[in-house]
Simulated assay, not measured.
Amino acid sequence: MSWIYISGILILSGINLLTVLGLSLLTGFTGLFSFGHAGFMAIGAYIAATATVKMGISFIPALLAGGCGAMIAGLLIGKLTLNLKGDYFCIATLGFGEAIRLILDNIKYFGGARGLPNIYPHTNLTVVIIIDIIAIVVLVFIIKSRHGRNMVAIREEEMASQVIGIDVFKYKLMSLAISALYAGIAGGLLAHYLGYIQPIMFKMVKSTELTIIVIFGGLGSVSGSVVGALLLTFLPEILRSFYEWRLVVYGAAVILIMITRPQGLMGGKEFSFKGIARIFRKFKNKSKNKKEGVKL
């Protein structure tokens, strides 16, 4: 495999990771399942691409505009649907994602079903890594703040949270808005990596894939989102030589993890610098002891 091919997969992993981090806040830490995040990605992609191609706006402001557009859409859909209970919110987000795709299919200004071509490829591995690091740091700060603790309380017991004075609707809406912002920026990055976008790229399958990554990595774990995004983006590419069977193997791997570890790979746990340093010291000590044994 050439470095160009590997870096391409890493870029796609980083773009998926950005959306998954936002979805992790909504699903893993607030307890709201969404199947409409491909719609938020589509909004971000089309706004960012239109800003650079048709309006001559530079890349970073265009990305922010795409993220803000998706966040506004998240606030609007949240105002209308967050009072729904259980599976009804999930169904509403699914309908939202499909509605966005069909609307884009029929707007000629955005190219309709043919899509929007000639997007300059601003996105590279360095840009994706920098944005992902910023996104992870911001997400960790949110989770460790009072607002993050309130979101976790809502996930654990919504009624009790309401009784002790937490504004449940406000924090659900905040979580959805931040999640949509992340997805919108990821959509802008995707548009400026591929150089071409089409509504069909943002089907329900994409939303399902993103939700699977969150569950696979572990609900309530930022580290799990990182591991899940990397593994499940790389796995179909590794299996590309088995073209006819690769999606079967991919599905079987996901099912196997769900059966053996229903809490996901990380199970709500996080990597820490202290833990990594401890593992490194143990490995170093073992290597040292082996060398000493050989000398004796």
Rank of each mutant, 00 (worst) to 15 (best):
A135Q: 07
A135F: 06
I136D: 06
V137Y: 13
V137G: 04
V137F: 11
V137Q: 03
V138N: 03
V138A: 05
V138R: 02
V138E: 01
L139N: 03
L139D: 09
V140E: 14
V140N: 05
V140G: 01
F141A: 02
F141N: 10
F141T: 04
I142G: 14
I142A: 10
I143N: 13
I143F: 08
I143M: 12
K144L: 09
K144G: 07
K144F: 00
K144M: 11
S145N: 07
S145M: 00
S145K: 01
S145Y: 06
R146K: 15
R146I: 13
R146V: 11
R146E: 14
R146S: 15
H147R: 00
H147T: 03
H147E: 10
G148F: 07
R149W: 07
N150Q: 02
N150R: 02
N150C: 09
M151V: 03
M151Y: 04
M151C: 05
M151A: 04
V152S: 10
V152L: 13
V152C: 11
A153C: 12
I154A: 04
I154L: 08
R155E: 02
R155N: 09
R155P: 00
E156D: 11
E158R: 09
E158H: 01
M159W: 04
A160I: 13
A160N: 11
S161G: 04
Q162P: 01
Q162A: 12
Q162V: 06
V163S: 06
V163F: 07
V163Q: 08
V163H: 11
V163N: 10
I164S: 12
I164F: 14
I164C: 11
I164V: 15
G165W: 04
G165M: 07
G165E: 01
G165K: 00
I166C: 07
I166Q: 10
D167P: 03
D167R: 05
D167A: 04
D167N: 13
V168I: 02
V168T: 02
V168D: 07
V168R: 03
K170D: 01
K170T: 03
K170R: 12
K170G: 03
K170F: 12
Y171A: 13
Y171K: 09
Y171N: 11
K172A: 03
K172T: 04
K172W: 09
K172L: 10
L173N: 13
L173Q: 14
L173V: 08
L173S: 14
M174Y: 05
M174Q: 07
S175C: 14
S175K: 08
L176G: 08
L176N: 08
L176S: 15
L176P: 10
L176F: 15
A177H: 06
I178H: 11
I178Y: 09
I178K: 09
S179G: 14
A180N: 02
A180C: 12
L181H: 04
Y182L: 12
Y182K: 01
A183T: 01
A183E: 06
G184P: 09
I185L: 09
I185V: 15
I185C: 00
A186R: 11
A186P: 13
G187C: 05
G187Q: 02
G187V: 02
G187D: 06
G187R: 05
G188V: 03
L189I: 02
L189T: 01
L189D: 05
L189F: 02
L190V: 06
L190E: 10
L190H: 08
A191S: 14
A191E: 08
